[in-house]
Design a protein around this nucleic acid. Structure first.
Lengths: 168, 168
DNA sequence: CTGAGTGCAAAGCCTTTGCACCGTT
DNA sequence: AACGGTGCAAAGGCTTTGCACTCAG
């Protein structure tokens, strides 16, 4: 719940700074997006739209698109392409960056952090005379036969992840 | 020219294996795609289509899409999303993988290789019990004021890269 | 009040598909 | 000759936009 409040505060401040309005819809969409129960689901716009509609039938599709754009602009949402040709969003928690590993077979999405890769990415940017602003990285992998760790759905283990996408 | 021939041979074998046909269009599109003069331009389908049309006016848009799909399937083309909401393709040279760094300001695209990052990506996949099949990584960076190295167009240096995209 | 925001439907993009004709095998 | 390929135009997804109405500040 805490993070929902923080997100709403961030949103509110950002809107005020930009002379935009803190509307019922923007608040609702942000609440749903940051709902702890859905935090790791990497929803597409449509998926989020459907969840929002469960709470308020009158919210329009376009509003969800527009709000997600705002959330992205104020650093609260992170758009990603994981491989199913849709833009998927995830709530951005300050200081909590992670990247994704997608199972080539079933589309299960796993999150991971790898400080050393991030460091090297900064180094690469620096090598070109740039300061790293952002990056997108997605790994695609196949679970081995004798794999104990892979929690890939198709292999029967309980998934520690919350999303499964349909790869092309 | 060598790589064009190699690509055509690879394509031809693959088509034969799959009982598909080695048509005039597929040959032409592949030749244009692997043309040394354009090798690093990361063309979108439309850009490639336009180039192909310079050599044969009758080639259709759909054929370029279909052929690029084939080239991707037989490992000769690599689709990428660099940040301008288009799929851009680059010729795949065996053993020559690289990733991209995009200038946040002007959209200039730079290619780089970083063995250590690749190694760590394999390690991450392994940690989850997966074998790494593929990955997508794009870095976004800003050129510094006092930057000598950044060959970002907007900053007046000769670009060592061949593509500039329009970021959203 | 006033201008930004919303919902709806229409329009835009990029990409795929159906179909009749064409060309490789 | 047989069957996959091609070109064209139409249709599909996802996303954005125009517009009249609504509501936050």
């Amino acid at each position: 719940m805490l993070q929902v409040e923080e997100a709403l505060n961030t949103l509110k401040s950002w809107l005020t700074e930009n002379r935009l309005k803190y509307t019922h819809q923007r608040k609702l969409i942000t609440e749903v997006f940051f709902d702890p129960a859905y935090r790791e689901t990497h929803p597409s716009v449509e998926e989020l739209y459907l969840r929002v509609r469960e709470r308020d039938r009158k919210v329009g599709y376009a509003t969800v698109y527009r709000t997600l754009k705002i959330l992205t602009d104020c650093g609260l949402a992170n758009p990603n392409r994981l491989g199913d040709n849709q833009t998927r969003y995830e709530p951005e928690i300050p200081g909590e960056h992670h990247d994704h590993l997608v199972c080539s077979e079933c589309g299960a999405v796993f999150e991971f952090e790898e400080e050393e890769i991030e460091r090297l990415q900064h180094a690469v940017a620096r090598r070109f005379g740039f300061t790293l602003d952002d990056h997108k990285m997605v790994l695609y992998g196949s679970p081995g036969e004798i794999c104990e760790l892979a929690a890939c759905q198709r292999h029967g283990t309980t998934p520690p992840h919350a999303t499964t996408i349909e790869l092309d």
